[in-house]
Design a protein around this nucleic acid. Structure first.
Lengths: 134, 134
DNA sequence: CCAATATTGAGAACCATTGTCAAACGCGGC
DNA sequence: GCCGCGTTTGACAATGGTTCTCAATATTGG
């Protein structure tokens, strides 16, 4: 087989529905919530398909996937640069933040101990201004 | 109710077995692995009890619990100072690292956006030197 | 329109984790 | 030592998120 084969990802109704749902909110949601959202929008997409699509989008770097304290995967569309999140633990409001210094630091720490093929997770949780006043 | 009630935690054979197993390694392990380890040590402790004990120890701050990339909980006894981890995703070998700069950075970012009552998670995953050669 | 290939969906399968509840245990008092 | 009581345990069921299976369906290039 020649190595020039295209992935051949097809733009289907289901994938459009997931993308549309993702565009409808800007905080992190579980796959099941996203599935419900799609249903409420009138579309019908299987839960397995939602999972498959979200995973694919995450691999493609078009959505962020992280895990809440219960280990559940939660998802959100994101910008395409590397970044982290400042998340309100009361309302879920999210701010994307960048920290070049942190990236550099993690790389240095890893190198110092001889670790290769590095990845890291960094999330900040707190109470946002809006939730503070109430 | 007076607030002077004692938790009444009893030092049982099972809890000792879990503590002993935790002392036997210094990398992160899943609850099931710890359960296996205990069996291999000759003790017999129910899996549910292992979970209960690990959760209690984590609440007491005597062990760290974090989640690997699959969302599984992994555990390890820890020092009592604030720190993060550099974890080998192949064998689990762990290095505790400190990063005052990072602590400061997260605080600054949070303040900048008006977030209060901050906490953060930061873990670094990679392949350790030993696993690299094989 | 056709054949080839990618995609979907319904439900089963997985599997880590938690709940249930009667039996066993550790403790303090006697 | 022995009792009684509240704590803890363990076997197993139940939960719940996520993935797998595979036949049916949709899309695409020709």
């Amino acid at each position: 087989m020649t190595s020039t084969e295209r992935p051949a990802v097809r733009p289907t109704r289901q994938r459009r529905a997931v993308a549309s749902a993702l565009a409808g909110f800007d905080d992190f949601r579980s796959a099941q919530e996203i599935h419900d959202l799609i249903s409420r929008q009138g579309d019908s997409v299987g839960l397995a398909t939602v999972y498959r699509t979200l995973s694919a989008l995450a691999d493609a770097g078009e959505v962020d996937m992280l895990r809440n304290e219960d280990g559940e995967a939660i998802w959100r569309s994101c910008s395409d640069t590397h970044h982290h999140h400042l998340v309100c633990r009361t309302c879920g409001a999210t701010v994307e933040v960048e920290g070049p210094a942190v990236e550099k630091w993690t790389g240095a720490i890893a190198a110092e101990h001889g670790y290769a093929d590095i990845s890291h997770t960094l999330e900040i949780f707190g109470t946002c201004p809006a939730c503070l006043v109430s």
